[in-house]
Structure formats: C-alpha cells, structure tokens
Nucleic acid binder design. Structure first.
Lengths: 137, 137
DNA sequence: ATAATTGCAAAACATTTGCGGGCAT
DNA sequence: ATGCCCGCAAATGTTTTGCAATTAT
C-alpha cells in the first residue's frame, strides 16, 4: 500500500463531510461546495479521497444502485431511512447496531468489517404530495 | 398503471430466479442462463421484468453501487453478507428482521415499505487467499 | 529528488430508454 | 383490434482510470 500524504484537497474533503453532519452528501455535492475555496478541484479527486477514507473506516459510503453514493462522516454503523421517491437519506435514531454485528459474526465464517442497515419508504413530504420529488436531497 | 400481461419471458425470469434459490443472481447472469431456452432474450427485458417484480414485492432487489444488483426470489426482508473482495452475497440465518422494521416505523414518520440489512466483509475463501477473487458469484 | 496526488478527459460499467415490430388479451 | 411487451441499439448517469503536471515528503 502506498504511503499517504496530507494534501489540501484530502483535508478539505474530510472537513467538509464532517461539517455536513447528518446531511449525507454525494461526491458531487461535496465537490460543488468545496469549489468555493478550491475552484480547480476535480470530481475524480473527491471520489478518490472519499474512497480512501471509507477504506480506512474513517467515514462510511452508503451505496444505492443508479443513484450516486452518499457519504456519512461517522465510522460507526447505524440505521438509515431512504425515501424511494426523492432519494432523501436520514439517520434512524434509537437502533443499536452492535448486537446485529455480533449476531452476524457468530452466524457466518466471514470476517465482518461493516454493515449497512437501510429502511426504504416514503418520507413525510412525499407521502403527502404523491408526486416525484427532487433528488438533490 | 398499465395492465400486466403474462408473457413467456416474464414467466421465465421469475421461474429462473426462484430456481436459483439462495444464489442471488444478477440480471446478466439470469439472462445468460435463460438464453439456453430463449436465445433472443434481451438484457433490457430481464431488467424490465425484474423491476416490475420487485416493485410488486414479489422479489427483492439488492443494491450496491458499482457492482450489478443482485436479486432475491423471496419478498421477506432478511439479512445478507457481502464479500468486499469477490462480491459473493449470501443469506445470514437466525436474524429476525421484523422487530427492526417495527422499530424503524416507530422512530420516523416515514411510510416504511422495506429494508435492507447487509453485512460487509471477507468471505472464508477470500480470507485465506488474500487476492482478488472472481465477481461472478 | 522521489513518488504520491492532482485535474482533466476519456473510459468503463450498470441500468434505462426509444422505437419499430410482435404478441397477449 | 388494441396496446402491452419484446429485442435491439443508443443514451444516461455514476464512478473509475490514464496521463502529464504538480506538490508533499
């Protein structure tokens, strides 16, 4: 594995993600925000740094086919709800993930390193106005 | 919503998925298998039918960015483990999903219709030979 | 000085969509 | 006869990769 360097871009990506607490931004959203201070920042750079941070278990990458990944600044696994209509992603409080991880480790001979617990449904807004909402949050 | 018809392709897709019990095939894998009997079957047709079946809660679509979706012939949510190296996807027995769904419904004002509980790690094979495995299972 | 990292463009990849023709109802 | 569905090809949208230039060590 290559030796890691501390660059302005790498620091900025992590800082911006931590600042976005609970927002679960996509790579493109982070890039757009960061360009205010780093106008030449490339989207590929954001992706590369997020990948590295996720691999080091400093952040979490929340996957969903067809729509862009969203990123969570905390490494501890926890539950999320995703709106099937507008794509909004929120934390679900009060659900302890630790016992689930323990159960999974006991059940299979996998080396379990993480988990993703995601509920799917309609957010309050989309429940009421039953039309396609915007996907940017 | 359009009225649904029973075509040879639609029946074949569901049958093949049910026959693959526990295999969690991708759309491309299903298509390849089905072409033995339906040589002209298009991948888009497989995708369209899987989407329809998943939307009707007859099957489940298991999402993961960057790698193809895998499909599960049972509609009941249950836990899976995924190997980060070779992409293998297996069921995790002995984990009841019902109480999680109940907790999520109580915690948020979402209309929760489904869930995905996925553990990530290294499968037994990849744990031992620490090199990149194949992704076709 | 060295090699990791960047920005940009192009590639790769899974999935969706448009369309003319075919088939279930 | 109607219009849903198919196969094919092209488009879409996200993420990755190649490469020359830059920058941290």
């Amino acid at each position: 594995m290559a030796k890691t360097r501390s660059t302005r871009q790498r620091r900025a990506v992590l800082e911006e993600l931590l600042r976005a607490e609970g927002t679960h931004p996509t790579a493109a959203e982070l890039c757009r925000r960061l360009r205010r201070h780093l106008p030449r920042l490339g989207l590929a750079t954001v992706y590369r740094n997020l990948e590295r941070l996720a691999h080091a278990s400093i952040i979490q990458r929340l996957e969903w086919s067809g729509r862009p990944c969203r990123y969570d600044g905390t490494p501890e696994p926890h539950a999320h709800v995703r709106c099937l209509r507008c794509g909004r992603l929120e934390d679900v409080p009060g659900l302890d993930a630790a016992p689930l991880l323990r159960a999974a480790k006991a059940a299979k001979q996998y080396e379990v390193t993480g988990m993703q617990l995601e509920f799917l449904g309609l957010c309050p807004r989309c429940r009421h106005r039953r039309r396609r909402g915007r996907a940017d949050h």
